[in-house]
Amino acid sequence: MSAPRDAARHGDSGLQPERTDLAWSRTTMAMVVAAAVFLRWLPHHGWFVGTLVGGAVIAALAINLTQKRRFHKAVRGINQEAMPPNTRATAAVAASVVILAVLGIYTVLFLPLQP
C-alpha cells in the first residue's frame, strides 16, 4: 500500500471527508455555471462583465486547487478527533460571492445595454 493511500484512510463510517470534498466540488461547478451565465452578458454590457466572468473562474479554480489539501486535513481531523475549521476558505468563498453579486448589481443598474 502506497503512502498517499494510507494518508487517505479513516474510520468514519459517515464518510464525512468524502462528502465534504464532494460538496466543495459541487460548489466549484456552481461557480463555473455562474461564470458561463455571466458570459451571456458580455455582448450586452461590454468589457466590464469580464471582471465577473474572470472572478467566478478564479474562485472556481482556487477551490479546485485546494481540494486535496482540505480532504487530507479532514481525514487527519477524523483520525485525531479534532480539526481546526476552514475559516479562511469559507470566508474567501463567501467574499467572492458577495463581490460577484455587487458587481452584478452594478452592471444591471449602471451599465447601459449596448445595441
Partner: peptide
Amino acid sequence: DPRFTLANERTFLAWIRTSLALLA
C-alpha cells in the same frame, strides 16, 4: 467533534450554492 465541523462546512456550502443559483 470534527464530524460536526465538517457538517457545518457542508451546510455552509449548500447556502453558498443557493446564493450562486440566485446570482445566476
